[in-house]
């Protein structure tokens, strides 16, 4: 099975409301991440912090295809996925503050956002560790006759792990309803794609498991949305697992501890010209779907949301230290 390359999506088909919706979603991510960086410098947030700038089109584009019954498994670079999935910016920030009102009670921090209500299963900081879990969630759905999708995000670094190959093999062997989304941002920490992989065409690796796979421009939210919609529809239709490679780029350092010795400033500059928010905004303006006033309105709205989230996190409380061993095991029996 050869990987598909999707052609140019029909931007003309996007109406004004949808354009506003996508722009708002990507803007929320960008502004949240900027705030995180700021709060990190202010020492409000500690630990590892991995930001998503540049990759917004992936989380936003893919999530459009999911319904509330679906499940999401993500990595340590997952603020965006949680936010777009429906976890509030306030509870995400509170989590990073380490407050007990955070979405993981302050137990996880930036890398371990969890939320039962939106079926957000983390927040996994072991590269590749989430893939088998996604297969299992999908297996549970299949065995219980439920039609829903488990969507699993990971970087191209995870593709070199054994668990990637084990999970793809299992998913195809068992025909479970899972969508694998590889966010290929060209670097695993400081190791570039060509130093990580003997075969750098990631979508081809999926194809060797006879897993229907598509590679898409991950800087183009409409392209991602179109490809994800197709893939998710196939999963829902019972056609088995699907694979989507989104070719993207991370604008910021890997984490807050990264001196970025492995790439040139010029390379980053070139990629920034293709930034998903700027290019989408320009395109929609050209098509007459968005006006300057819309962008301004969204920025204002998002600024207020983030401000509110910070205020919320600030006002949240610390878990009592006596609770340090709570939830090592469940309290009481199972329902």
């Amino acid at each position: 099975m050869k990987p598909k390359r999707t052609g140019k999506p029909e931007a003309a088909a996007v109406d004004r409301d949808h354009a506003l919706h996508l722009l708002r979603a990507m803007t929320r991510i960008r502004r949240l991440e900027e705030k995180c960086a700021e709060l990190y410098s202010a020492m409000k947030i500690r630990g590892f912090l991995h930001l998503y700038d540049g990759q917004e089109a992936v989380a936003v584009g893919v999530m459009q295809a999911l319904t509330p019954e679906d499940a999401v498994v993500a990595t340590y670079r997952e603020h965006a996925h949680a936010l777009i999935r429906g976890v509030s910016a306030g509870s995400i920030l509170a989590e990073m503050y380490g407050k007990q009102e955070g979405c993981s009670r302050g137990r996880g921090g930036s890398m371990h956002l969890f939320d039962q209500e939106t079926r957000f299963y983390g927040g996994n900081a072991i590269v590749g560790g989430g893939l088998p879990i996604a297969v299992g969630l999908a297996l549970a759905d299949k065995m219980q006759g439920r039609v829903r999708v488990t969507c699993c995000f990971f970087g191209e670094g995870a593709v070199a792990e054994g668990e990637f190959h084990e999970s793809l093999n299992l998913a195809v062997l068992w025909q479970v309803p899972v969508l694998f989304v590889c966010e290929n941002n060209l670097y695993a920490m400081g190791t570039a794609l060509e130093f990580e992989h003997a075969v750098t065409d990631i979508a081809r690796k999926a194809a060797c498991y006879d897993l229907p796979s598509t590679a898409v421009d991950g800087m183009d939210v409409l392209a991602v949305e179109t490809a994800a919609a197709r893939a998710v529809a196939a999963v829902r239709a019972g056609e088995g697992p699907q694979f989507l490679e989104c070719r993207t780029y991370r604008f910021r350092a890997h984490s807050m501890y990264d001196a970025e010795l492995y790439r040139s400033k010029d390379e980053v500059r070139q990629w920034k010209k293709r930034g998903p928010i700027a290019t989408f905004t320009q395109k929609m303006k050209r098509r007459g779907r968005l006006a300057d006033a819309d962008v301004k309105a969204i920025e204002g709205e998002v600024a207020r949301e983030i401000e509110g989230a910070v205020a919320f996190a600030e006002a949240c409380t610390w878990e009592p230290v006596e609770d340090a061993t709570r939830f090592v095991y469940s309290e009481g029996r199972m329902p």
Binding site: A71, Y121, L131, G136, L139, A140
Partner: peptide, 21 residues
């Protein structure tokens, strides 16, 4: 029956448990 994928099928067991099995 599973293939020889200890990490894969133990992880899938965790996922299946999370999914209600």
């Amino acid at each position: 029956d599973t293939p020889l994928s200890e990490s894969g099928f133990v992880g899938a067991g965790i996922g299946a448990a999370l999914g209600g099995m």
